[in-house]
Design a protein around this nucleic acid. Structure first.
Length: 570
DNA sequence: TGCACCAGCGCC
DNA sequence: AAACGGCGCTGATGCA
């Protein structure tokens, strides 16, 4: 390994010229970061930038020592159309972006490539593990957590830094071969093109009304105190409603047979004892209190914003997952959502798909009834309600539509009669008998025969893998469950579509004040200047509809975009 | 005391 | 023949 440790702009220029002149325009890129929190791009800084190129010395650039000109030369090079190869590019892109370097496509992320290949198997995606798997090479990692802020870096540190960049080019070669063999190049490409959007969302964060959270916490606490007293008055003692053990023991001592301490089970026993209602209320309130306390905790005082981390292949299906702070599980209740607000003078543009998973199911299965319904612009929940109850579409009541909604989603998940009862009650407060549930299911599949045929076919396959319409492959360790085989292609196609939107959105918004704020599976939140809201609304809506049309050829797609002064507004 | 697990529940 | 999809977070529980 031929390495150059570079601390000076003139030397950098010389080598950078070699890089710019190389025949194959591919560069391995890696960063070492430092500071009080070297893993947080808003708190840490860049210490080293390492570059590797075919047949060229590896450059280990001591970034803080470059002068403005050197930093600018580096920026020019990294923003050029050379293929940048990184492992976990999101991390490096965020540090670079904060330092004024906006990494552009083409980007090849070896972590995402490995994740696409192994989707569902959940292997370690750390660089050393991926290198071991695909190149059978042991990459030492001892220096990873060493102190990168000290004046003099040790030879071991420099060697470590160089090696991480050096390995990226052979690793990319190998991964491309594997992706090609598995017909996953397109999916890997989509993942890499989604990166800038993820970087934007993580760096932008979302503004929180912190005073509002304090008020909410106080009111929830007070309500909880009252309900706890009420419960105490009935049972003569304090219990912890979060302890399933205590709840079960208490109710049994009061002569109530309980299946579990779950709210959905307890609520069915409401008439059996007066303690049950306050227990349920306390459960709801403790959960609310949990959120009210949690939301302000992560808000960074310097910016008043809450930052999340997205995992781009967080789910086997290809969906994003979100953590620390998990925006994807904020209660839908406006008391919570109204705490998330745009800056002064800005608004949110919020857009989501209408019934996306059912539309995808229609497309994938080719079910004639579903297709015809969507082509006529019908609402499928209403149609299902009408078909299972035998009344006209115009006669469908709200309650009937709720039943049908549970039925539609339940059937996408591959549920049986028993589970549908639980699901309908837990999610839609629809109480079904076993007989009703079974009748609903029978009628459902008599109506949607094409969907049934597709599900049966999916369930019969023995290979333990599934594919989305975007050709994303989902592997299951061992034998796949029926429910996974019928659901993952649908959920995964939804992810393909959303990622397609994310891959084009940063460029579409580039000429506007629009900033990508959040993505919640079938919903995208953008913040922009009030004046530009109608433009951004149109951009977002059309980006979503165009992207979906790439996958859904026979089903029309609708994205509903609206302008809002908080996340709560519909 | 710390850790691993799980029950339960928020979202789509 | 039947089949309970995908996440992350909290607090309780049980064990070392």
């Amino acid at each position: 390994m031929n390495c150059k440790y570079i601390t000076n702009t003139e030397v950098l220029k010389t080598y950078l010229r070699q890089y710019q002149e190389q025949d194959v325009q591919v560069v391995g890129l890696d960063l070492e970061t430092m500071g009080e929190d070297p893993l947080n791009p808003r708190k840490g800084g860049i210490r080293l930038i390492q570059l590797s190129g075919q047949g060229l010395p590896i450059l280990i650039i001591d970034y803080p020592r470059l002068n403005v000109e050197g930093k600018n030369d580096l920026k020019q090079y990294l923003e050029s159309d050379v293929i940048k190869v990184l492992h976990n590019a999101k991390f490096d892109m965020e540090f670079l972006k904060i330092n004024g370097i906006d990494l552009k496509q083409p980007i090849f992320d070896t972590l995402l490539a490995a994740a696409v290949l192994k989707a569902g198997l959940n292997p370690s995606l750390k660089l050393d593990a991926v290198v071991k798997e695909y190149l059978n090479y042991d990459l030492p990692k001892e220096e990873q957590r060493s102190d990168w802020s000290q004046e003099q870096l040790t030879p071991d540190q420099l060697l470590y830094a160089a090696r991480d960049a050096w390995i990226l080019l052979p690793l990319r070669e190998k991964l491309i071969q594997e992706l090609y063999r598995a017909d996953l190049l397109e999916v890997a490409n989509l993942e890499c093109q989604t990166l800038p959007a993820i970087v934007e969302m993580e760096l932008n964060g979302i503004r929180v009304n912190v005073q509002g959270t304090a008020v909410l916490e106080k009111t929830v606490k007070e309500r909880l105190r009252i309900k706890e007293q009420e419960l105490n008055a009935i049972i003569g003692k304090d219990i912890n409603v979060n302890s399933s053990k205590q709840v079960k023991e208490l109710l049994e001592s009061l002569g109530v047979e309980v299946k579990s301490s779950k709210s959905e089970d307890l609520s069915k026993l409401n008439d059996q004892h007066p303690a049950i209602a306050p227990i349920l209320a306390c459960k709801v309130l403790t959960k609310q209190l949990q959120f009210a306390k949690k939301i302000p905790k992560g808000v960074e005082p310097e910016t008043g914003r809450l930052y999340s981390q997205y995992r781009q292949l967080g789910a086997i299906t290809g969906r994003l997952s979100c953590k620390e702070f998990n925006l994807q599980q904020v209660p839908h209740d406006s008391a919570f959502r109204e705490l998330f607000v745009p800056n002064e003078g800005d608004v949110f543009v919020i857009s989501d798909y209408s019934q996306m998973q059912i539309r995808i199911a229609a497309e994938i299965s080719g079910d004639q009834t579903m297709l015809a319904a969507y082509q006529q612009g019908l609402d499928l929940h209403t149609l299902t309600a009408s078909l299972v109850s035998g009344v006209d579409v115009n006669e469908v009541t709200k309650a009937m539509r709720s039943e049908a909604k549970a039925l539609n989603f339940g059937m996408l998940f591959g549920m049986g009669a028993e589970s549908l009862i639980t699901y309908a009650w837990g999610s839609y407060e629809v109480l079904l008998t076993l007989e009703q549930s079974q009748t609903f299911i029978d009628t459902f599949f008599k109506t949607y025969r094409g969907l049934k045929a597709w599900q049966t076919k999916q369930g019969r396959q023995q290979t333990s893998k599934a594919y989305t319409l975007g050709k994303r492959r989902q592997l299951f360790p061992g034998k796949a469950r029926y429910t996974q085989l019928v659901n993952t292609p649908i959920q995964g196609t939804e992810a393909d579509i959303l990622k397609t939107v994310l891959s084009i959105l940063p460029d579409l918004l580039a000429g506007t004040s629009g900033k990508l704020i959040a993505c919640i599976h079938d919903e995208i939140v953008v913040e922009c200047l009030k004046d530009e809201a109608p433009l951004v609304q149109e951009l977002l809506k059309s980006a979503m509809e165009i992207s979906a049309k790439k996958y859904l050829k026979t089903v029309p797609v609708v994205a509903d975009a609206h302008i809002a002064s908080s996340w709560a507004e519909k």
